[in-house]
Design a binder for these strands. Sequence first.
DNA 1: ATATGTGCAAAGGGTTTGCAGATAT
DNA 2: ATATCTGCAAACCCTTTGCACATAT
Lengths: 136, 136
Amino acid sequence: MSFEEDLKQSGLKITPQRMAILKEIQKCGHPTIEEIYENILQEHPSISLATIYKNIISLCEAGLLQEIRINMQKQRYEIAHGEHMHTVCTICGKIEDLEMNLNHLYTNKSVIQKIAPSYIAAVVYGKCLECQKSKK
Amino acid sequence: MSFEEDLKQSGLKITPQRMAILKEIQKCGHPTIEEIYENILQEHPSISLATIYKNIISLCEAGLLQEIRINMQKQRYEIAHGEHMHTVCTICGKIEDLEMNLNHLYTNKSVIQKIAPSYIAAVVYGKCLECQKSKK
DNA sequence: ATATGTGCAAAGGGTTTGCAGATAT
DNA sequence: ATATCTGCAAACCCTTTGCACATAT
């Protein structure tokens, strides 16, 4: 489904600023607010940081964006697209999606003894393939 | 092992402020910086917020504390104590430890194709038992 | 035509920093 | 004795807010 349709379905108006934000996040993958702003500025020099902040909030509430929390970093955002994990390389900083099913946790006995799960966020920290190869 | 020994082993001095921070985090479970500060103030009215910040950083670096990142919240901290998951009730906000082994993920094929994992953070969002029971 | 959205500037929080004096070893 | 730590105040972010104007529907 296109961003335009997603916005319409959420009752949000289709504005150039919103489209730019969504496209930028799609392009970057997992950008911070600052990265979104800096990159959009190039094509759209009059956009305001306040507009980015306001839209990030509406787009998260609408379920089009998903916040990602990584230890010791500012919050990041991605286009919401089914549940998955993230990998973070502690050497080079690279962040990637890890398409992996956590369904077994939703029905796990230890989990349902504590909570009726609606969403699970999982981040794997480690050394990515490239950094494993590099001699140092 | 006691906090005093942990600090000594990390080459950090044992100060009343540090002990108060560690004990407060142990008491609260998963407090934010602000919660730590507000609570310590009662017993230790002259402690400075800057001291809390500086110590949180050293204690995390020393591995005595672990940062916890929950979507849409300020960062929280806990006494480091073996890997486990966290549950967050989206109704009442309660945060709890979920002692659960994620060892299978460390050797999972999809994971090791991307990264050599050193740490996994997992947060389960949902409705806790009490909130499930309450009629509303 | 009207409800939303944008940009600006100011205000509001949270976090970091430098430094002088205090303290743990 | 000395390296480290603390508290203070200022600086430095990052984020939110109110408002007037602009724009999507």
